[in-house]
């Protein structure tokens, strides 16, 4: 497959936005988007983890294909992700203890974020080369970060409004997400058939 880099970028950032159009990374999307500051930090650390683990799993996939051990792919990918998360945790702990204290609880959660695992799986399934994989990882995670921030901003707005007590919490968040996702459906025509 020979997709242009621009197409990959627009496709994974907007048209097939991981969160709003493919429904990946839902747990953190619904759980951590109550405050903009948290959502933003979570988005950036997920971006970092996705990009690093995407590049590493591209390399590991070559090794696995060479060894004819494709059935180990899933296990190898998840181990890479767990290791990257651990590394990020150590890195942040050493360089900025203040940020670590704020993010501490959420960092281990990145391991079980489906968006992180989906990037290596998709790039393998679509036979992307190295540059394409990197662009894909960056733009997909950028899309995740953007969706997180958007929902967090909307939720901060609804904090003070008068909502029926039944609908408070997850139900309201889901309705907001539905409206956001409907807006993103509008990008569907932008692919230009590429």
């Amino acid at each position: 497959m020979n997709e242009s880099l621009g197409h990959i970028f627009v496709d994974s950032f907007l048209i097939n936005n991981f969160v709003l159009c493919v429904c990946l990374g839902m747990c953190s999307f619904l759980g951590l988007s109550a405050k903009f500051s948290t959502a933003w930090r979570m988005g950036v650390s997920v971006m970092f983890v996705i990009t690093v683990s995407g590049i590493l799993s591209y390399g590991m996939n070559i090794v696995l294909v060479m060894l004819h051990a494709e059935y180990l792919r899933l296990i190898v990918y998840i181990v890479i992700i767990a290791a990257t998360v651990q590394l990020t945790e150590m890195f942040i702990k050493k360089n900025s203890p203040a940020l670590f204290r704020e993010l501490g609880v959420y960092l281990p959660l990145i391991t079980t974020n489906c968006a992180v695992l989906a990037v290596p799986l998709f790039q393998t399934a679509r036979n992307y080369n190295f540059v394409q994989s990197t662009v894909f990882a960056l733009s997909a995670s950028g899309g995740y970060c953007m969706a997180m921030c958007l929902l967090a901003l909307v939720r901060e707005r609804t904090e003070l409004s008068d909502v029926p007590s039944l609908a408070r919490g997850t139900a309201l968040t889901l309705v907001l997400a539905s409206v956001l996702s409907m807006a993103f459906m509008g990008f569907a025509g932008m692919g230009g058939g590429g």
Binding site: L172, V175, V179
Partner: peptide, 12 residues
């Protein structure tokens, strides 16, 4: 996807 969000909200 929007239908998914909204129908889960309704069930909840």
């Amino acid at each position: 996807p929007p239908g998914g969000f909204i129908s889960l909200a309704i069930w909840l």
